[in-house]
Design a protein around this nucleic acid. Structure first.
Lengths: 229, 229
DNA sequence: GCAAAAGTGTTTTGTCTACACCCATGA
DNA sequence: TCATGGGTGTAGACAAAACACTTTTGC
């Protein structure tokens, strides 16, 4: 089939940029790299790359994420398209931003030196190229919305976690603090946490029970629409 | 400044597609056109167009919307990027979908004949080209989320409206029905409606008071975060 | 006078908030 | 025995849900 109708249309460079969030137990952090090409070479930036014509935009995002983290099966979600004409002084490039949540421990220091990457707390971000600061800002807002109705936050925690770790996570995301009793009650009442027999004994003498996210229970409850906080 | 680093990257066709919603008093409807170029010529489709290299993606969406409706200042919001490799059999085209809300009466029949366009209720959509049905599905979900925390829904109503029209709108969006007393109380308690002296007397003998959305009051309350339904 | 839509209150239920003490343990 | 974080219950405020009758008016 001939497609003369598309022939004389402008083609644009299409990039993906990934906002990768991690949680260290206290703060939400974003993973940034030193940009390795002009313009803006050496400046802090989100990990990104161009979309090839032989892959979907989503595949490109996965590829970029995998390259940086070595991980497959990353929790990832499309954020938005950033399409201002002048956003990249190097040329007309539109960028599809994705945000991803990973366990900070999955990301080891070999990878950090290899990619010249670093975790930055959200309240102490360095100067960033182009519109990447806006991307992170939007991603942070989206993260807040997301975890209020979805269990995505668990992706930021280790498999087994204590209630206090979970609370610290939500407090970091919302930049606020919650009453421990109310928080515990709310989370347990959702019926999506499996209490384990094990205790975590590093951070306290008494030891705190570990929990796991119960995916099966969640799947059943999902359609009704849970409200986390 | 030279930018050798971007030189050998693939460039893609970038399109925008607009999901335009209207409300006729009973149903939410989407405005569709007969596609006027191959592939898929003559099939129902969202109004769309290609992004030129000299305009932002958002400007392209506005341009497309304006071309179809003649309106400027349309309520419009980016939905998502649809980037599958094979989504358009005519070539590698990624599309940024926007959704827009307009007053159905602003869209007159001259425009409909000119663009070969028609309103379709969401539960009776015709076959659509490419992934446009997915776009509409996603837009519908986004509309529901949006009107639950934002007064965007008012853009679908005439300037002056009755409480029953407002309720009918929310019922159409959520595909459910609400108790009239609870609905009225809730809406009035938000303090963003201005009750007018006028009555609407077409649809009932008694006549129902007309209301207006009070933008000023809303702006003040906005930051606290309203919850509509 | 009757049909048709407008308008209006109360009770019950559940959810959110605020708040403080005892427990278990290792050092 | 003491310092540290773990774990738990209750009362009051508020919001949501359920529920039905009277009013106005044009015909």
């Amino acid at each position: 089939m001939s497609i003369p109708q598309y022939k004389f249309r402008d083609k644009l460079l299409v990039a993906v940029d990934c906002i990768i969030f991690g949680f260290d137990g206290l703060q939400i952090k974003a993973l940034l790299v030193k940009r390795d090409l002009e313009p803006g070479k050496g400046i802090n930036a989100l990990m990104g790359g161009f979309v090839n014509s032989k892959e979907s935009v989503q595949e490109a995002a996965k590829r970029v994420l995998n390259k940086l983290t070595g991980l497959t099966d990353i929790y990832m979600e499309q954020l938005a398209c950033f399409g201002d004409e002048e956003r990249d002084p190097g040329g007309r490039v539109i960028s599809i931003a994705y945000f991803a949540l990973i366990k900070i421990d999955d990301y080891n220091s070999d990878l950090m030196t290899e990619h010249n990457s670093r975790w930055f707390p959200l309240d102490a971000l360095p100067a960033l190229v182009f519109d990447h600061a806006n991307m992170i800002k939007l991603a942070k807002e989206r993260l807040q919305e997301k975890v209020s109705t979805h269990p995505s936050g668990f992706t930021l925690l280790p498999q087994k976690f204590t209630l206090q770790q979970l609370q610290a996570l939500y407090e970091a995301i919302y930049e606020t603090s919650f009453d421990k009793r109310n928080f515990t009650r709310k989370m347990l009442s959702l019926n999506i946490l499996k209490k384990l027999a094990e205790k975590e004994t590093v951070s306290s003498r008494k030891g705190a029970f570990l929990f796991e996210f119960d995916k099966k229970k969640y799947k059943i409850l999902e359609k009704e629409g849970l409200k986390f906080l």
